[in-house]
Design a binder for these strands. Sequence first.
DNA 1: CTATCTGATAATTCATAGTTATTAAATACT
DNA 2: AGTATTTAATAACTATGAATTATCAGATAG
Lengths: 295, 295
Amino acid sequence: MNYQIELRHFIYFLAVAEELHYRKAAEKLFISQPGLSTQIKQMEGILQTQLFIRDKKKVRLTPAGDFLKGEVEFILNHLEQTKKQLKLIGEGHLGEIRIGFLGSAMQNVIPNLLLDLKEKFPFIHTSLEELSNKAQISAILRDKLDLGFVRLSRVPKGLKLKPVFEDTFSLVLPADHILNEKDFKSINQVATDDFILFSQDYSPQYYDTVLSICEDAGFSPNVSHKSVHAQTVFKLVENKLGIAIVPTALQYGFQMKVKFIELKKIKQRAILSMVWKEDNRNPVLQNCIDLLLKL
Amino acid sequence: MNYQIELRHFIYFLAVAEELHYRKAAEKLFISQPGLSTQIKQMEGILQTQLFIRDKKKVRLTPAGDFLKGEVEFILNHLEQTKKQLKLIGEGHLGEIRIGFLGSAMQNVIPNLLLDLKEKFPFIHTSLEELSNKAQISAILRDKLDLGFVRLSRVPKGLKLKPVFEDTFSLVLPADHILNEKDFKSINQVATDDFILFSQDYSPQYYDTVLSICEDAGFSPNVSHKSVHAQTVFKLVENKLGIAIVPTALQYGFQMKVKFIELKKIKQRAILSMVWKEDNRNPVLQNCIDLLLKL
DNA sequence: CTATCTGATAATTCATAGTTATTAAATACT
DNA sequence: AGTATTTAATAACTATGAATTATCAGATAG
């Protein structure tokens, strides 16, 4: 009759929304299929909104259902985070902060941040995860991540973006490439080489910047390969499958038969920024941001 | 045993946290005091954290409880907001509709539709794209577009077609063409001129109709150029590369040295229809269709 | 045309939220 | 001090409704 929505409904709903299959979803939840059916139907009744379209043999989300899926993911993630923090507070610790970062941030900003954090707030737990720009933004919006380190110039509404590290770019060449640092004058000298770049969708900002560097030099690069990890890019260069242009900081931390030539003269810079949700409720976050801005 | 937190717990918790008095909180919730006591206790068990300090006669929040109070308020508010939005989406008052149109629809139907839509459903977002007939049909079938505006007499199965605007045709002549509106009697007078038409595959319906107009007049037109954009057609006419026959509405909105002679007597009409997928589940779509049919 | 999927329905069971009745402890008032 | 009145917690019970089993009807595949 006059039921109320419960978290149980959300968990059931999410399972169906993910599987788009009642029996499979029910199995995953360790309940019976009829039970799941009635609960979802009840949920639709409470919300007075149809969430799924079932035309025998196919289950799909309605636009409303699709919207709710995003919200439910957010609510459940937020709740999970709240539970963890609650327990830490109960135990006298302070909390946890979940940080995402691009692989290229591991060389400088992240280690410093972690050391400082550990020193100032010894009871703060940190969880670290290497993710693409896009994945970080999505995780932050869904409250799966508190702080991200990305290379982007714009972020969706509701998120804050603050540059924290500016780096020059460097040319990456096979160790035995004819061009040497002392002979180097301009990247025009490698205009005809094949280029290996980070995937456009891993970091569109980086991609555009590298193209603009080449454009400024008066040529359009021949992109032979795209990759996601610096490791892979360097390996490809080492094997003479092409050359690359990457943030200079990446030269540290890899053991490869490649040489770096820093492009000091060009105006473009690799900018690493931190992102977070403006209305994030994690009390640890503000401390973390303040700390970083002082670095 | 192995209970799960439910929203009920949060609502009960909040009542106690506000009243700091079990009996009063229970009254407010219309449940009995022992029931409330056990639920709160159960909650503390699930969260493995003490939330209240009860030293007989006084109830206080622990620091953890204080933190949780803020979070619960946030979650319940967010949930309330989500429920409201969900209902709006379900009713089609909130959401997005993706509209495709032929350039020639931009003069009349589209602006009116958009204005009306904005007025009636201010929270609906629209995405607009100028596309050929063919491209619109293909996009609608793939669910990349919700609504299209085309000049076609038939559409593939599963799509619905509804005429929304009927227009006469007009002859388009260079400004200094010998033929004037007052001397005009029949298009036979321009039977020997070269014709510029919209490409057959941009709008086969239009193409056939123009041919039939000429046929009815007893001649077969000399087609010198074909183009996709009205802009281009008019430019070609302006430069005396030929004359054209286009829907009359196109005479507005272009700054060209051409003159229009409306073909009032001929029976053919330029019919603009809207197309959509019969089983499209976007709730905004139906509202949009209803609105247009009333126009 | 049968076999095998799908989700929905109906009847039933069973867990548990919430009930009433009561208790123990703390304060307030003669 | 002794009684009255308050508090939340405990115990025994009830009744709501979540979840189960059994079954059905429609869709698809072989």
